[in-house]
Amino acid sequence: MARGPLMILCLAAILAAGFSRVGAAGDVELGQYLAGECLGCHMADGSDHGIPSIIRLSEADFVMALNAYRDGLRAHRVMQMIAGRLSESEIAALAAYFGGLE
């Protein structure tokens, strides 16, 4: 079976492609993974049962909101903690992912 080395090459190529995307527009695939952390609380359908919707925001608004938590300008300790460990590119990735949801 020559599948193993082939798969490793594929993986390397995919990873390389992925990293090269980071830094420009948000990396949607990374955003989808990171979004898992948001969707333990926030509804994916955008409804609000006690925790506000984070979809259908413009990417700029999304980035601004997370930066405000990260900088302590918006008061919510759990969100400050969550946002506090997100890098610029991770926030961009999340904004791109959530911005693209229906």
Binding site: L39, G40, C41, H42, A44, S47, D48, H49, G50, I51
Partner: peptide, 14 residues
């Protein structure tokens, strides 16, 4: 408390 109710909806949908 209200946030916990929102979380319940969120995690069960997830």
């Amino acid at each position: 408390y209200e946030e916990s109710v929102g979380w319940y909806a969120g995690i069960t949908a997830d």
